[in-house]
Design a protein around this nucleic acid. Structure first.
Length: 425
RNA sequence: GGAAAGGUGGCAGAGUGGUCGAAUGCGGCGGUCUCGAAAACCGUUGUGCGGGCAACCGUACCGGGAGUUCGAAUCUCCCCCUUUCCGCCA
């Protein structure tokens, strides 16, 4: 959520930001409703002051034996008027809030303006020693490999649940678990994150806090009976850990790393890049979440990206880092880097991580603040998160890059102590 | 799922219709004392919104919502949550 004062003072800037994000929102209506709201508040507060004054006089008058029926009748009228004003105010605030919840975050000025992913900017790329895009060997894709080695079972996943719910079998399951443990250990022991194991179901307030609701409702699974939502990312429970709280400035930055399964309906995305692991309804992800002081958040974003890259370099998987242009930024993000890993079978880059700074957009929605030591006043923190990383897309690149001409998989060196085996055949 | 108790300021915990944003204690901050610290003592200490350049003023908030009343932390109704016991169960 944007600051109402900011919108009031910079309506043209806000409109431009919305346009650059390829979104639409009713900024002029916000300004009108805001004006109306302030008039109503002023009126109602004046009447309430009058009522409060009378309320303290009535007991005194009664003690003195004076007749209070006149004042009471007058206050009855005042109260009715207050009720009417409060009703109007509630409606105006609801209308205002409904619009505000659909206004996207502003892109940071450092983000390139662009319409679509075609205008994202490659920041850097990293390739393992000896890597070549022009492999002379015939490569199998991850689906063929998974089938041949009996480590991935898409058909049975579809049987027991539905399409997009793959099953990991045997060494495939062990490899998946090893990846998760490897990534968590690295973030916790080398990058200074605190481990969190959150619930995989959250309530509606949490989904609103991080911005999944109300706008992205169609993409979320919902358990209506209990009013709960399976999380699309650990970002939701972990960012909401401090919802409604005020932390001390010296505690910042707070850095959490969490594993979770992630559930996404992916409504309307059938057909495109959806085979095998490329788009699934349930996948595993290790997520990094940070709460920072406003002035530190962009430095922390750079570090966040490096922490994710560190994983890929340790695994020796080729990747590149993109800075998303305004048109490709998500609803809540002010700036975002995507990390894409190389798929030799698809001959394309696959998004495996997304690292974003939300500035105070989520903090404002979720009411997460810190106490500024200098001013003693609470201020909104900045929140950031990044995948570190999602295992499904990573698994595609890993299997395809580590296959041998005979169709076996060499397990990356750093995972040996987790897997207990060095080859999948 | 059944039964009971309870949700008040950073925490603990009073308050059952009127000057209650709320006693008291702890904690925090500032000060006195001290070479320094502790103890003791004194003072101070919530958040949002509106108005104002500001000092400040007004208003709202005692789990959430609705109601009764001139007036609600306090009374009524609905909902949510927590704890304990029983049942079921990984």
């Amino acid at each position: 959520m944007l600051d109402l004062k900011f919108i009031r003072e910079n309506p043209e800037l806000v409109k431009k930001g919305i346009e650059n994000k390829n979104e639409t929102a009713r900024v002029d209506e916000v300004l009108e409703l805001d004006q109306k709201r302030r008039e109503l508040v002023l009126n109602a507060d004046e009447l309430k002051a009058k009522r409060n004054q009378a309320s303290s006089q009535i007991p005194q008058m009664k003690k003195a034996g004076q007749d209070t029926s006149g004042v009471m009748a007058e206050m009855k009228r005042v109260s009715d008027e207050i009720t009417s004003l409060d009703d109007q105010l509630r409606q105006v605030e609801k209308d205002l809030n409904d619009i505000l919840m659909y206004i996207p975050n502003m892109p940071n000025p450092s983000v390139p303006v662009g319409k679509s992913s075609a205008e994202n900017v490659e920041v850097r790329r990293w390739l393992p020693e000896g890597f070549s895009f022009e492999s002379e060997e015939k490569v199998l894709d991850h689906i063929e490999l998974g089938k041949k080695l009996k480590i991935l079972d898409f058909e049975r996943g579809a049987k027991i649940t539905g399409s997009g719910f793959p099953v990991y079998m045997g060494k495939g399951a062990t490899l998946e678990r090893s990846l998760i443990n490897f990534m968590l250990d690295k973030h916790i022991h080398e990058h200074g994150y605190k481990e969190v194991f959150p619930p995989f179901l959250v309530n509606e307030d949490s989904m609103k806090g991080t911005g999944q609701l109300p706008k992205m409702e169609e993409d979320m699974y919902a358990i209506e009976k209990d009013g709960l939502y399976p999380i699309p990312t650990a970002e939701v429970p972990v960012t909401n850990l401090l919802r409604g709280e005020i932390v001390e400035e010296k505690e910042l930055p707070i850095k959490f790393a969490a594993y979770s399964a992630c559930f996404r309906r992916e409504a309307g995305s059938y057909g495109k890049d959806s085979k095998g692991f490329l788009r699934v309804h349930q996948f595993n992800k290790v997520e990094m979440v940070k709460y920072t002081k406003p002035e530190d958040s962009y430095d922390e974003l750079e570090k966040l990206v490096r922490d994710a890259e560190d994983i890929l370099q340790a695994l020796k998987i080729p990747y590149r880092v993109l800075m998303l242009c305004t048109g490709d930024l998500s609803f809540s993000a002010a700036k975002c880097y995507d990390i894409e890993t190389w798929s030799p079978a698809e001959k394309k880059w696959l998004e495996a991580s997304s690292c974003s700074n939300f500035e105070n957009f989520q903090a404002r929605r979720a009411n997460i603040r810190f106490r500024n030591e200098a001013t003693k006043k609470p201020e909104f923190v900045h929140t950031l998160n990044g995948s570190g990383l999602a295992t499904s897309r990573l698994m595609v690149s890993l299997l395809e890059n580590y296959q041998t001409p005979e169709g076996k998989i060499i397990v990356p060196q750093v995972l040996h102590k987790y897997t207990g085996f060095e080859v999948i055949d």
